[in-house]
Design a protein around this nucleic acid. Structure first.
Lengths: 119, 119
DNA sequence: GGGCTATTTCAGCCTTGACTTATATAAGCG
DNA sequence: CGCTTATATAAGTCAAGGCTGAAATAGCCC
């Protein structure tokens, strides 16, 4: 399953968001997702399996619990793919970045251009 | 259709890659993709429709031709989603650019639970 | 107008994958 | 040990969406 297919599912995206805050047992993830999406525990477990097998998450056993954590490698791959399109929107920011990298001689208006939906 | 669902299809990703090099008529895209994936011209047209309707591409008529181009807005949205995971792999220099893009609001440490593996 | 080219739309098939319920595995605990 | 908790797997159903061939739309050129 390709990285983008994995991220295509809203439940899986949500799970990754949850794991981004730190390691969590399957049960906790399951309960949150269950509450938010109204799906069963096995459904969540299947999503965790996909995340595991596609490399987005790692698992660690703690007694009967399974602690899941984000593995960023595939996300990085996604980010790399986006790379070629970044020029389409980051001209302003890139310019500023260059300026900063050159020594940040003068700091002018902060880049307040960015907006974005907060999930 | 969610942005990630759109990108979930390899044909659509390829089309976006093609368009990243500049505006192209549907026919040219169609022919390339047809050669690479072995699917029919209507199939490509349907993918173009998805890209159009989901905001990833814009069209412009030129006689009987349709010139397609990338619209970066949804890609930006995807990039924004990735934002929260960037801390997992950007402890290096590229953290600068990312942080700068965020407006350098705050210095946030990635979840200390786990270090991202360096492949 | 008639025919050619470029592209989209339609209708139907068929695969994929997300879900459910039921069941299996396995660790903790009395 | 058996009961309970935590999680995974199995089997089967169902809908979404990607594909095809056929037909529709529309500009172009004689």
């Amino acid at each position: 399953m390709h990285a983008f297919d994995v991220l295509g599912d809203p439940v899986r995206r949500r799970i990754l968001e949850l794991l981004a805050d730190g390691e969590q047992p399957a049960g906790a993830v399951s309960e949150t997702v269950r509450a938010e999406f109204g799906i069963s525990q096995p459904a969540v477990s299947q999503h965790l399996k996909v995340l595991r097998e596609s490399g987005f998450a790692t698992v660690r056993a703690d007694g009967t619990r399974r602690l899941y954590a984000v593995d960023a490698a595939p996300l990085r791959e996604v980010d790399a793919w986006l790379e070629r399109f970044r020029g389409f929107w980051s001209q302003r920011l890139d310019a500023l970045g260059t300026e900063l990298a050159r020594g940040r001689r003068e700091r002018r208006t902060p880049p307040s251009t960015r907006e974005g939906p907060e999930p």
